[in-house]
Design a binder for these strands. Structure first.
Lengths: 247, 247
DNA sequence: CGATGGCTTGAGGGTATTCAAGTGACGTGG
DNA sequence: CCACGTCACTTGAATACCCTCAAGCCATCG
């Protein structure tokens, strides 16, 4: 190690990856040798907004972990319409289930806010799952949780109206204990609208409605919720869970 | 064995269960001793229409297999509204993922057409998953498939209109190769409507619309599709898959 | 023959969408 | 420094879509 490196230690990409992985539950049950393999074979990439990581039907050669930024998971119809399945941020893994699905992605992934993304060859995941039952179990739990979230998504989209979906979304951004909150919307409103299954116009109108009827205050991207209880009463009657709910 | 038993062999419940399980993929990778345990601890029940098997939040002590009839999987909101997540029939397993979800069901299950249902203690499933990696892998694939189906469900509910959802449903009943087809709806139309997330009235009207605009002909429970291509053009533009699609 | 249940049809209403126009913030170039 | 274009967002009017409530149809069954 040179004198310079002592002062400014040069971190290899592998070391960076190791650090990042250590904080993510998804990788916790993997064997050490597999983690080493991920370090060697993994890539870290800065990806600008608008970049499409992969499309529906692409060969699923890699799976991904978001370190920073935002990624939308979507499906596009032949008619050109798009259904947003989810919007993910730091700590989320995606493309991981494709190893069970004929090795092709079942959805597309696009960066919607400048991101740093790690990617790894899918076969490492596949081998680890087949050889390490502890990881297989944790993977099972991971997918099971995703499953549950999708059930809830289906529920929300079918029984909540637009304003309630927005309320639910805002509540999830709130800390549990507080009685009031000030939020900053991290992404464009039109994107939130799409994530909640509505048009930007409807989003705008419904937000105004929430302002009148649920005691919130909007100023550009900043939203102040003066009384969380009031918003809960407005929103959560159209849901099977009560706030605070986990997902 | 008596002479009578030779002619009319008396089948024990355990033997019945064994026969049924043998035909279901979900159980295929289980070890023989676990299958024996399921035979001993399993129950077969005839359940009348309207009976609620379990509710959201109930302790998840058992998981289920439908041998005959129909079961709807639903979530109920605090306001009393209900979202139908799925409608299942013979061969489907439900309540199986609860072993990963704090041991409580995340949804309710109600019989909507007189059914014969097998049930088994959840701990057998839990143990088998923990001890047999082959089964754990097949379970993983099973849940992964459900996950994919839910993604598609979210897509279809957000981009297809009622008539297209019906068209999609009809196409799935068609043989791939044919250019025309005659179908018999095996179930009550109101049941199909529920499965597709619409009211019976909307189902009826949309079916009439398909008749006008997509070249199909309806006579009671019999539906004739003269030109599958025409129906595909009408329906599949609002989907990310093209006919023939698998699920 | 009347009752029932599944299905259809009609009228009316609510919610979200589309199309269109307008506002306001921001950055660029004159 | 201001004019201008761009882009996100908002607002308005008309429309589409699906829902509810209600009545009517028709086959089945006691």
């Amino acid at each position: 190690m040179t004198a310079l490196e002592k002062i400014l230690p040069i971190e290899t990409e592998g070391q960076k990856i190791a650090k990042i992985l250590a904080a993510i539950v998804f990788f916790a049950a993997m064997r050490p040798q597999t983690k080493n393999l991920l370090q060697r074979e993994g890539r870290i990439q800065s990806v600008p907004k608008g970049h499409i990581i992969f499309m529906n039907e692409d060969d699923a050669a890699r799976f991904y972990l978001i370190q920073r930024g935002w990624v939308k998971i979507f499906r596009e119809t032949l008619g050109g319409e798009e259904a947003i399945l989810d919007v993910l941020t730091a700590g989320s893994v995606f493309g991981e289930t494709s190893i069970f699905e004929n090795k092709a992605y079942a959805y597309g992934a696009e960066v919607i806010e400048d991101a740093v993304i790690l990617s790894f060859p899918s076969h490492i995941l596949e081998n680890e799952t087949a050889e390490n039952i502890d990881f297989a179990l944790s993977f099972l739990q991971h997918i099971s949780r995703k499953n549950l979230a999708k059930d809830k998504e289906i529920e929300l989209r079918s029984v909540q109206n637009a304003a309630q979906r927005i309320g639910c979304f805002l509540l999830r951004l709130c800390k549990t204990e507080q009685r009031s909150a000030t939020l900053h919307l991290a992404w464009e409103k039109s994107l939130i609208a799409a994530r909640l299954g509505m048009t930007p116009e409807t989003f705008s109108r419904s937000l105004a409605k929430l302002q009148k009827e649920a005691g919130i205050h909007i100023k550009g991207p900043t939203i102040t919720i003066s009384d969380i209880g009031m918003l809960v009463r407005y929103t959560c009657t159209a849901c099977s869970n009560v706030f605070p709910c986990d997902n």
